[in-house]
Nucleic acid binder design. Structure first.
Lengths: 355, 355
DNA sequence: CTGAAAGCGCTTACAG
DNA sequence: CTGAAAGCGCTTACAG
């Protein structure tokens, strides 16, 4: 005998049936809450179920019935609060609906993504919610996942040919969010507005840049190349790259940042150069992470409500599983501008203080 | 026909067997990488598997073999970065070992915990890692989970009678961490040191308070009741409660905080009263959340390495599943003091500045 | 309302 | 090395 867990033999429907003198079919009907069973019989069976500590084996039932009540969720990175919140929202809705969540994460690696998905689909999930790793290959994914399972792609488009393959798509309105952020800065009189951070080849960054350009174009402004500064989407890199904004005169007086991490890094970088966000320079972030509300100064940003997105994704996939008709294939979730102190500063003030 | 996903019939071992003229048993042996199959046959079968897009049905295999390669993880709250990081660590190790993770969250509610666990165990996980909700009832949990499955309790003890029930237990060394934090403040000359935040009846808070008392006692100091301030473990509440520290003279000159959120809230509360952490008052947190390194001033804290704890938990439970002998039943994970600017200030300076 | 029988997709002795 | 048969725990027509 190993040190393994106690090996008490599993209690099955047969044990319950034998224990109270009915057939296995009757026990099954009681388990599935069928009205066909006499109330007395049902009570007897239920008592026996409690007495013997029976645990329903949903895998066996799913096998027989050809159904599944698991949904797979595959994310890039759980330690990113955006995805953690999203997963929390998915979980809340799935649990409410009696589903169970199979979770995997890819660390932004397409290879790991293939491996993780291959492992998860062997557990026969009813559906998949996938936030794809950067540089995923849609064709490989399609081959792996087949067409038996509804798939909802979250956050990042898989390729230009979407959504011809019948997968659902839920994304943030990156373009509109960046446009709103830029318009907010324009409304305060800024004309030289940078777009700071992110990598141009990521889809969310290029969408946000597009919204930024939209707003500038509507105001008749052509962005100076110096205003477009790339950097890894981390606080540290943003602090390091701050100098690039001020390499030549006239420097921008405000920046729309790729995300809040970058914005907070920029605020630090500004401080190191003797400038203060919200007094000498206007900063807007993107995401509304918890820290944004309590940083110094509080950070203006675009709220994306990741938990609500998770709930929305789960509801959509459940509706797809029910076979609801008229479901949208593509949802672009609205985002919201939250104005805080970091962006409430006019450009003249900024020029004066930074001279 | 509903709008549901394409209903292509499932490909099974029988289809593969028929497709290349062997028996189902042979296909099964190929799937399980048995050396009993001739290399040519194996190649033929594998080609057919690819050709037909066969997906292994692990549920059916588990049913037949009486095994499972899923591990359930039940947490209080995914949106808490501590638990999200922990889950990431668990996932990394499980995926590496070919296991799949079933995730549920309880929102600190014992009722939801019972429901979530009941739903998850129907999926026959091989093991469970549980971070119990506050006020869990060990007896009810025990009844629900039975003894068939190894269980690892993380982070919070379930009751004083543990671990008589054969469950594993992994916790942070809360007591020692708080002791180190307190000793660090003592070493700089502080004598009037508060323990700020948390609720006395939570086990982690009472352990941390015990460590704090240990250090004070070793220095011959009896804590003044005014030094023990309770508050909800959030930044906002901590800011609100800051005044309680200074209700009477002499006020403390330093504080060990229940966690980093509380410590950051305290720093804000101090600022609102014209005091600056790291100049007029010394603050130490607990957790080392990412924000601690970049707050103003950077926060001294006790690093608990949640991702590493997750990896450790997963490794332990996998070893238990393998039936390794000599596994410890109770692990108290070491924590580490990280000194940053918020605590590097001597008490005399503090008194001077706050007069 | 209840029971006997077949079958979901897989694996595993047991013969050959 | 391969094949026929039984069985994991459940559900579902089909008779009674």
């Amino acid at each position: 005998m190993s040190m393994n867990s106690a090996q008490a033999k599993r209690v099955t429907v047969s044990d319950i049936a034998a224990g109270c003198g009915v057939s296995r079919a009757t026990v099954s009907l009681v388990l599935r809450e069928s009205p066909l069973v006499h109330a007395d019989t049902r009570a007897r069976v239920q008592a026996e179920i409690v007495r013997q500590g029976y645990v329903y084996h949903r895998g066996a039932a799913s096998l027989r019935r050809g159904t599944s009540n698991a949904v797979a969720l595959v994310l890039n990175d759980l330690s990113n609060p955006f995805f953690a919140e999203f997963a929390g929202g998915v979980d809340a809705v799935l649990a409410e609906a009696g589903y169970v969540m199979l979770l995997g994460s890819t660390g932004e690696s397409p290879q790991r993504q293939q491996a993780v998905l291959a492992s998860l689909i062997e557990h026969d999930p009813a559906a998949l919610i996938l936030s794809p790793a950067e540089h995923s290959e849609p064709a490989r994914l399609q081959r792996l996942l087949g067409t038996r399972m509804p798939v909802l792609v979250f956050n990042r488009a898989l390729g230009d040919d979407e959504p011809g393959d019948g997968w659902d798509f839920l994304a943030l309105d990156n373009r509109n969010g960046a446009r709103m952020a830029t318009e907010h800065l324009l409304a305060q009189g800024h004309r030289a507005i940078a777009f700071f951070g992110g990598h141009r080849d990521s889809s969310s960054c290029s969408e946000r840049r597009a919204g930024y350009r939209d707003a500038l174009a509507a105001a008749g402004i052509e962005p100076d190349p110096q205003w477009l500064v790339e950097c890894a989407p981390t606080r540290l890199e943003a602090t390091r790259q701050t100098g690039a904004l001020f390499a030549r005169d006239p420097a921008p007086t405000a920046a729309v940042c790729y995300n809040d991490a970058v914005a907070l890094g920029l605020i630090g970088g500004l401080a190191a150069r003797g400038r203060q966000a919200g007094r000498d320079f206007a900063v807007v972030g993107f995401d509304d992470i918890p820290e944004a509300a309590v940083s110094t100064p509080p950070l203006s940003t675009i709220a994306v409500a990741p938990r609500e997105r998770g709930m929305q994704a789960a509801r959509l996939i459940l509706a797809r599983l029910r076979g609801d008709s008229d479901l949208p294939r593509r949802i672009v979730a609205p985002v919201q501008l939250r104005v805080r102190a970091s962006s409430v500063v006019a450009p003249t003030l900024s020029n004066g203080a930074s001279a």
